[in-house]
């Protein structure tokens, strides 16, 4: 099980825009912790099941910002979907704010997404109504929240002003540049005032500047409302903007990095994934000797072995 650091507020860049107001005492204000314990997930296919996750242990503290890294097909999106309650784990525990999502019914999980979880799926267009204006898209999200008894902390115009998107309020989303569309998608994800924001590759296909602008939005929300933010990205530069990164490899947590320093992670079974750059020294199926040291362990090839 990995445990990350706290909120890295130092990286927040408000860029002169109006600060997002803290909502002390307001229900739903602040972030929620997320905990994945021994999570296994299988995708049922005709003929054979595909194992996507093989025992993921991951703790994200309330108000933490985490980027999930890793090659394609390694299970990052699945982790995010499990956190969003879109999928339920085949085994293991997924807890958001202390609630076990696996035990919640579909309606309860939808209710969570209506208020507490803002989930941005991969790509821009699935996250908004392309024919509607930006303002109407925000209303669309907040309407869902209101039907669940969740009162968004801001009205649509106010939110857009707060995010610096006020000038786009009456623009039809389909007509906006892709970067702006992604900002609108983020705004939509934040519209209900969620305590956990999950974003699947929110900067994909964006220019570096546009990508950074999107991440800045997350950082502002995280910094000013304490919202927990978990994103999936392939982009190292984007990941570098997060205080904590978690690398998913082969359906497990392969490594973590805190403020740029990378660590291998020992999971609940004592397994540890070696970084790819040392595999030339210890290729797969190599027998190693584990040597205990005062500050840790050392892996050594037996004498004479290649």
């Amino acid at each position: 099980m990995t445990r990350g650091g706290g909120v890295d507020t130092e990286t927040g860049d408000e860029g002169g825009s109006t600060p997002v107001p803290a909502v002390d005492g307001e229900p739903g204000a602040g972030g929620v912790p997320v905990r994945l314990t021994g999570v296994v997930h299988l995708y049922r296919q005709s003929g054979a099941d595909v194992v996507a996750l093989r025992g993921v242990d991951l703790d994200v503290d309330a108000g933490e910002m985490v980027a999930l890294l890793g090659p394609s097909g390694m299970g990052k999106t699945t982790v995010l979907r499990l956190m969003a309650g879109v999928l339920t784990p085949s085994a293991g525990l997924v807890q958001v704010g202390g609630r076990d999502l696996g035990r919640l019914g579909g309606a309860d999980r939808r209710a969570l997404r209506a208020g507490e979880i803002g989930y941005l799926v991969q790509g821009t267009t699935p996250n908004f109504l392309p024919f509607a204006t930006v303002l109407e898209n925000i209303w669309f999200v907040q309407h869902g929240a209101r039907t669940r008894g969740h009162t968004p902390p801001w009205d649509p115009a106010q939110l857009l002003e707060l995010l610096g998107l006020g000038d786009l309020a009456h623009a039809r989303v389909a007509g906006l540049p892709r970067g702006r569309q992604q900002q609108v998608a983020v705004a939509a994800g934040l519209a209900a005032g969620p305590r956990l924001v999950l974003a699947d590759e929110p900067t994909a296909q964006l220019s570096p500047e546009a990508g950074r602008a999107v991440i800045e939005l997350f950082r502002r929300v995280n910094a000013e409302r304490g919202t927990t933010v978990v994103i999936v990205t392939h982009d190292g530069a984007i990941a570098a903007m997060f205080p904590r990164t978690v690398t998913i490899r082969d359906g497990r947590v392969g490594a973590e990095a805190h403020h740029g320093e990378e660590y291998a992670v020992v999971d609940g079974t004592g397994s540890v994934q070696l970084p790819p750059d040392v595999l030339d020294l210890l290729p797969p199926n190599t027998r190693v000797r584990v040597v205990r040291r005062p500050d840790g362990v050392e892996l050594r090839r037996p004498e004479g072995a290649l």
């Binding site: 999200v141 309407h143 929240a145």
Partner: peptide, 16 residues
Amino acid sequence: LRDVGLAELRGYRPRS
């Protein structure tokens, strides 16, 4: 389909 998916994503009640 995308509109419906978005409504699901945003936690809309089935009736909505």
